[in-house]
Simulated scan of single mutants.
Amino acid sequence: MNKTDFTFSINSISFDENYQPSDNTRITTNFANLARGEKRQDNLRNALKMIDNRFNALASWDNANGDRYSTELNIISVDIDVEGNGQTFPTIEILKNHIVDHKTGQRIEGIVGNNFSSYVRDYDFSVILSNHNKGREQFSIPDNFGELHGKLFKSFVNSQVYKDNFKKAPVICLSVSDSKTYFRSENQHPILGYEYQPNESSLTEQYFAKMGLKVRYFMPANSAAPLAFYHSGDLLNDYTNLELISTISTMETFQKIYRPEIYNANAAAGKHYKPNLKNQDHSLTQIVYDREERSQLAVSQGKFVEEHFIKPYNTLLEQWSANSPL
């Protein structure tokens, strides 16, 4: 087997105040979680307004009224056909943003990636890693952890369907880890802000490295904490200012909702920063979110992947992964 034996397909759906999660969407996904319950439309409307406000605050030049730009978000769902028989399994969901410049009338392409959700990642962390460490006194990582997932991701990014739909490599923007300490450097980017360095590598860094992504940490102006930017090329030179602003405004908004203790803290990170999910000195957004439910659902979805993807295709996946040059 080789990598051409797997076929990827993508579907796109607008993430707006009328968004309804599809049947294939992981219900732990950030944007899907917002679109549930009685407050779903208020949640979506408020989140989108927060994104636009943050975008205009960062893109302040020639923007005296702070309303020059608005953003459009699309959820990109990626399915994989393992056997080439038309039977597909949902693998990855990412976000693509476009920027609308109301002064010039232009619709400008933003960054693809941003949020990252993956069924196989749920399986790796909620099933493989959990089972491996049951009964162990000391935490450890199993051999080949994340290799299949990493190769599937790289195969998608290298695929013709990716190249046909997206002009640039993805950038995934995540929260910092509450188990690490981050140190502010003197490197300052006009959009991304001050760069921070972690005291050690995290499991997330190692996992994303197998996806072909490296990470840099930056804290934009008027942010409360650094963000982790996972990328494959040159983060500072491959993307325009507006593209970088699009991912900051989108993902910082999500993090303010999901991790207000870090990203909506009332005191900003200093030169030495240790994130704290128990920080009481933070503000809440007007958006309803159930973090505990989300962690429970990750386990059930990991088991779903095991039953409907890993077990049925185990032999094919192992052969492909062993022979894949990625």
Rank of each mutant, 00 (worst) to 15 (best):
residue 266 N to D: 10
residue 86 G to H: 03
residue 231 H to L: 13
residue 22 S to Q: 12
residue 9 S to R: 14
residue 8 F to R: 02
residue 285 T to K: 06
residue 123 Y to R: 05
residue 144 N to D: 11
residue 127 V to Y: 00
residue 77 S to A: 14
residue 38 E to S: 11
residue 61 W to D: 14
residue 231 H to G: 04
residue 1 M to E: 09
residue 290 D to L: 13
residue 116 F to W: 03
residue 239 Y to A: 07
residue 58 L to T: 02
residue 257 I to L: 04
residue 148 L to I: 12
residue 2 N to G: 02
residue 79 D to W: 02
residue 109 E to K: 13
residue 247 T to L: 13
residue 259 R to A: 10
residue 110 G to F: 09
residue 201 S to K: 13
residue 114 N to C: 13
residue 88 T to A: 01
residue 30 N to F: 14
residue 110 G to K: 03
residue 324 S to A: 08
residue 279 N to Y: 13
residue 255 Q to T: 07
residue 133 N to S: 08
residue 258 Y to S: 06
residue 139 F to Y: 15
residue 70 S to V: 08
residue 303 K to D: 09
residue 77 S to K: 12
residue 166 F to N: 06
residue 82 V to M: 08
residue 228 A to T: 01
residue 210 K to C: 06
residue 166 F to A: 04
residue 197 Q to M: 15
residue 141 I to A: 02
residue 86 G to F: 01
residue 300 S to W: 08
residue 326 L to Y: 14
residue 112 V to G: 02
residue 83 E to L: 14
residue 303 K to Q: 14
residue 135 G to A: 04
residue 170 P to Y: 05
residue 33 N to F: 12
residue 114 N to G: 12
residue 299 V to G: 01
residue 54 R to W: 02
residue 131 N to K: 09
residue 18 N to L: 13
residue 174 L to P: 00
residue 173 C to E: 09
residue 210 K to D: 06
residue 57 A to H: 12
residue 94 I to D: 01
residue 101 D to V: 14
residue 194 Y to F: 14
residue 66 G to K: 06
residue 24 N to A: 09
residue 153 F to W: 15
residue 14 S to K: 12
residue 126 S to N: 09
residue 271 K to M: 11
residue 35 A to T: 00
residue 5 D to Y: 01
residue 143 D to H: 10
residue 260 P to G: 10
residue 229 F to I: 13
residue 67 D to Q: 13
residue 122 D to H: 11
residue 262 I to H: 00
residue 297 L to Y: 05
residue 154 K to P: 01
residue 280 Q to V: 08
residue 245 I to F: 05
residue 178 D to Y: 06
residue 140 S to N: 05
residue 20 Q to V: 15
residue 305 V to Y: 00
residue 46 N to A: 03
residue 89 F to V: 11
residue 149 H to D: 07
residue 261 E to H: 11
residue 113 G to N: 08
residue 229 F to H: 11
residue 14 S to W: 06
residue 239 Y to S: 07
residue 125 F to K: 04
residue 255 Q to R: 09
residue 317 L to W: 03
residue 139 F to I: 12
residue 73 L to I: 14
residue 133 N to M: 14
residue 276 N to W: 06
